[in-house]
Design a binder for these strands. Structure first.
Lengths: 207, 207, 207, 207
DNA sequence: GGCTAACCGAGACGGTACGTCCTGTCTTGAG
DNA sequence: CTCAAGACAGGACGTACCGTCTCGGTTAGCC
């Protein structure tokens, strides 16, 4: 009843994922090729196609197995501190080429591959948004954050700033930038008597 | 000294740009092909390569000549109103397939094409950021906005939210969304006695 | 000393041969595939490779077990009648798709596979040539045929005509054709009454 | 009105045909590969596919341009002599590897490729049969050959013997063989009062 | 009003990678 | 030790586009 048959080689799997990551970092996602991965991994092309439908799936697999455990949310009792920590972690990840290069490649590819977009969203976006939403909810409950806060939009603004730098302006991300984004979004734009400066630096370096 | 000879055909140029736009909308940027454009436009491949270095340049050219005039910044005397208007315009543009499809394609392509990234930034990002910065600067001067506002980061948050929806979460953009983003970013996150309700609804539909 | 283990499955063998024959007739020898046979026979590829070195061997096996008994030589007392009967049988065999298709495929394959050519010759050509030679020898002994007949060459001419139709001209074979070939080869080309065998002079000794 | 466009490169064509012939002779028709030809010829695979539908067509083209002019029929006034000369030429051609190897390969391939079979027949069989038929017809007119000769079958027997050796028995062909085939077919099998035995041995070497 | 040079369409060229198919070998687990 | 199942390395397939390169045939614009 059981299908039996030779089991897929874990060795081959590892070799493929490692080769894919190496090549993305070396040459970029666009220049990545199934044939290139196969050669580098010392594996037949067919072996790759047997396990993954295309290079996007390979890279996805490679990225997920390396990065997913690193983005848990803290719970320090302060929403602001929680966000600061989490945003810092994301920035750190976006800063490492071994994550950023494949990730940006996948985001680019997902613009014309709905399946990839869905998978990417499911694995790399959704859970983090849920974590952030939970942090904000706790903040509202504690009275730390505005009661009428539109949480999804707040998250869009916070994370949107990071993605904007990563994908659109290509300006460098830094730990300081993480701090400042949280500060500014916390404070809002409008002048307000009691809107005590939260200690965020006034110095407007964009980094 | 004078070159004599036949000038480039404006007819051909128009046909190429039109064909490129049509095809991007129909099939997507990724599926766009120089050969496809040539065929649709009734033009030789050579003619395209003579005027543009690749499909990115063609699409860029096509998009710019259609969209650039539509994004001037208003000056109503109220920073909030100015932003609201401008963000609405961007959202409207992002909503039209004839702009969004090629634009997203170009952004995706720019992730592995630095030249394209630079050009894109120069033409489609820089001037709008300058306009937004000017609006915020006026708001600060008028005392309407926080004096210690970090303007570039505020812009990242505002526009980042829009790009985030466009490129990452792929949730639909709408005029209402534009309003809410401006509201939330204006108000900031933290609870504050004087943080006068900006009138933004608490009901946080994400649309 | 006892072999132990499980004996080869006769069931599997039959299934493979049957499947091979079916597929050759349906799709042709060239389109025949070990994988195809395995699937049709409900058998693993390994099982086939364990018993045969390749598709040629399988088809050979299948063909031999069906056709070999059908080509015995008669001995009616008349060489002409013996040949006529035997040639008719060969024609009939060449006319049945279930023999002709695999046979022609094997002949084609044997052009680039010496082992196959040898086996094929051994099993499907040699014994029939021996039979034909015997018939002719008897005819010569009886005085029914020319005393200086070059038997191998006579056989080449007789059977060559059949193979020529089968492999080269692809004109249809028929019982009538069999009769006529025998008639013509018997009669020779030259006008008969005064026909001094002029050819005998050219054929010197054995080469 | 004329399509213009860059004309096909005669250089490339020659290189492809030469490479194909070389490789057939070296490795055999079966082992011939479009990729192999492309590499040997220093040409892109696509260039080959642009001009020929497959390796059969390439080899065909190569063989025809080399061998066709060599097989004209003589007219000496004697049918027997004409046939002897022509059969000798065919034997000589079948003996040269640079013709025999590709030719046999094509014949093998034509067993499962009707288009190829037709083309092959058209170019390499039909005209020679026509020539032979003409020779025989003249012989009949002159009274040199039997009046009731079945010409197509006589040709089948004559040429069939050659093809039989080439494709089936794989026994070597030789000029002497050509002579003997003509002799035997001329003489016929049956004993005849006037068919004086010249004393030549009946045991013909099979060579 | 004729020259003439650059432009045009067409399409062949050397390449690269695609995703598929089949080869013959191997590795399992069940019988 | 055999079997069904199926993964493995490898090789070739025929296709789609790439960007470059000839070709004739057509237009301008200046003589």
């Amino acid at each position: 009843m059981t299908p039996a048959g030779r089991p897929k080689s874990e060795t081959a799997r590892q070799a493929v994922l490692a080769a894919a990551l190496e090549l993305v970092v070396e040459k970029g996602y666009q220049a990545l090729t199934i044939e290139g991965i196969a050669e580098r991994a010392g594996v037949a092309k067919t072996t790759i196609y047997r396990s993954w439908p295309g290079k996007a799936a390979v890279v996805m697999d490679a990225v997920l197995s390396e990065s997913n455990p690193r983005l848990t949310f803290p719970d320090t009792g302060s929403a602001r501190e929680d966000l600061r920590l989490q945003v810092s972690r994301v920035v750190r990840l976006f800063t490492e080429p071994s994550f950023a290069k494949p990730f940006v490649g996948l985001l680019a590819a997902s613009q014309h591959d709905e399946t990839l977009a869905d998978t990417l969203h499911e694995w790399l976006v959704k859970t983090r948004r849920a974590g952030a939403a939970e942090v904000l909810r706790r903040g509202v409950e504690r009275g730390e954050l505005r009661a009428d806060l539109n949480i999804p939009i707040a998250i869009d603004a916070l994370y949107g700033a990071l993605y904007y730098r990563l994908l659109v302006s290509h300006e460098p991300l830094s730990p300081q930038y993480a701090e400042r984004v949280v500060s500014e979004v916390f404070a809002g734009l409008q002048a307000s008597k009691n809107s005590v400066s939260t200690g965020a630096s006034t110095s407007g370096g964009t980094t």
